[in-house]
Design a protein around this nucleic acid. Structure first.
Lengths: 135, 135
DNA sequence: CCAGTTTTGACAATCATTTTCGTTTTCGTG
DNA sequence: CACGAAAACGAAAATGATTGTCAAAACTGG
C-alpha cells in the first residue's frame, strides 16, 4: 500500500539475488531516498508476512530477501559469489521429505531446501582470475 | 582436548535435539560448572570446525548445535516442539541437487536440506491437550 | 482546514555472538 | 620440583543486526 513499502519492493525486484535489509537500505539511500532503516525492516516484515518475498538466512544468521516470480512453493539455486538466484521446483524432493517425515511418525511436515554453488558467469570469471592473475 | 570443550561436547551429547550456545551454557551452569559463556562459544566453534557437531540456524537466526552419530553428510528431521532430531540420509536428494546445479551451469554445488515436523510423541500430547483441555 | 488514524524515522534498547585482555592452567624441559 | 612459554579461561566491553519507543509528518474523511 504505502509508498515506502512499494519502494522497498521495487528495490528488491531490481535484483535477481537475495539482499539483506541493510543492503536494500543502502541501495535506496544511494538512489536519493530519505527512507529510514526502521521502515525498510517494517516493509520487509510485511512483505514476507504476506508471502510476497522469500526470506532465508545466510550462514552468519543475517536475513536476506528476494522478490520471486511465483508465490507458490519453490526452492532456490543461489550463487555463492554474486548471490543471484534461480527459482527451482523439486517434486522429487517434496515427495521425499513427506515420506521421510511420515516414516518417522512426524506430522505437519515441512522442509527447507536451498542449493548453493557458483554460477556460470562467476565460475568463468574466477577461473580466469585464478590462472592469469588479472585483478 | 581441553576439559572444557569435553564438557560442552558431553552436554550436547546428552540431548537428542539441537541446542543453542545459550542453552548449553545454562545447562552447564545448572550442573554446577563454572564455565564461562565465551568458552562455550569457543568450544562450539571448534567442534563445528572439526565437523564433530552439526550447526543450523533457527528461523530467528540463532545458531543451534547437535552432536550427531555420524560425521558423514546427512540431513535432519527435526521436531518443531521438542527439537529432537533424527538423522536422515537422502541419496535421492543428493542426486537431485547435483543435477539441478549442473543443469543451470553452477559449479561447486552444495545444498542444505532440513525437514521439520511434530514428532509422534509431541503430536499425541498436543492432540490430547487440544481435545481434553488437560493443561 | 480539522480531528483522528496511519506511517515514518531518529534514537535507544535487545540479544546473540565476537573481541579484548588480563589471569589461570597446562606442559615441556632443565 | 621449578620455570617460562603457550594454550585455555572468563569477565567485561564491543559489535552488528533487528526491534521497540515515541514524537513528528502525511493522509483521511468530513
Amino acid at each position: 500500500m504505502s509508498t515506502r513499502r512499494e519502494a522497498v519492493r521495487q528495490a528488491l525486484t531490481e535484483s535477481s539475488g537475495f539482499r539483506s535489509a541493510q543492503d536494500l537500505y543502502a541501495d535506496l539511500r544511494a538512489d536519493g531516498s530519505k527512507i529510514g532503516l526502521t521502515t525498510v525492516y517494517r516493509a520487509l516484515q510485511a512483505l514476507s508476512d504476506s508471502g510476497e518475498v522469500d526470506v532465508l538466512r545466510t550462514d552468519d544468521g543475517e536475513a536476506v530477501y528476494r522478490a520471486c516470480d511465483t508465490e507458490s512453493h519453490h526452492h532456490h539455486l543461489v550463487c555463492r559469489t554474486c548471490s543471484t538466484a534461480v527459482e527451482i521446483e523439486g517434486p522429487t524432493v517434496e515427495r521425499w521429505a513427506a515420506e521421510v517425515g511420515a516414516k518417522h511418525g512426524f506430522t505437519g511436515v515441512t522442509h527447507t531446501v536451498e542449493v548453493f554453488g557458483t554460477c556460470g558467469t562467476c565460475s568463468r570469471r574466477l577461473a580466469q582470475q585464478g590462472s592469469a592473475q588479472q585483478v
